[in-house]
Design a protein around this nucleic acid. Sequence first.
DNA 1: CTGTATCCCCCTCGATACTG
DNA 2: CAGTATCGAGGGGGATACAG
Lengths: 119, 119
Amino acid sequence: MNVMKNVTNKSEPSNEAFAERCPMPDIARLIGGKWKLIILQVLIFQGTKRFGELKRDVDGITQTMLTGQLRALEEDGLVTREVFPEVPPRVEYTATEKAMALTKMFHAMHDWWMLECKK
Amino acid sequence: MNVMKNVTNKSEPSNEAFAERCPMPDIARLIGGKWKLIILQVLIFQGTKRFGELKRDVDGITQTMLTGQLRALEEDGLVTREVFPEVPPRVEYTATEKAMALTKMFHAMHDWWMLECKK
DNA sequence: CTGTATCCCCCTCGATACTG
DNA sequence: CAGTATCGAGGGGGATACAG
């Protein structure tokens, strides 16, 4: 109850409202954890990947974790999974539009890292 | 940002170099976990808070966790801690410039949530 | 009011083996 | 190649008590 009340008017939304309406716990459920942002980063900025490629690109992840995380991301509508009926099997993962909309956030994160941390 | 093979996809100046130079594990160490982003969100958008206020604003956090997370954030230069020699004690926490630089990212996250998830 | 000090649970994550 | 099935360890996180 104090502090930082933006004078009058503003183009930005109310700070209090912003804090309330941007529920971090809910967001964390979608993109939190040790691997999801890394996986999404690869799929968003490098495009469609098959399982093996992803495993190589996401450093240190195990098959078990990769499968699990991809299933969760798929369930939340962040990646699509396409199975090709071939031998040997081929499965491709692609970032959805919902995931691609995270591009701005990734860039903001990248800029922050470059400007504030990497010095 | 020099380029590698940016031929077939993506419009933004994003490529493999981007993914490599934005190390999510390092970022996660600074602002990852269950509480840090929530704490920072409050301090950034609502301004300086004392310990008790913070505990009330960050829903569900315990004293132990709040103290620990604040110590970590302080050590990483994201919050400052000011102790007032009074009785009863008063301690105020403030987001540093380094933390305030996360504003853009928070807004990007907020926009994403509003546009892609809250529907 | 603002912390420490303990104790401990649980859940994420990892290692390994096996399959179509 | 792309999974599934287990099992187990580790640590992040929580509850409580106590202190300055």
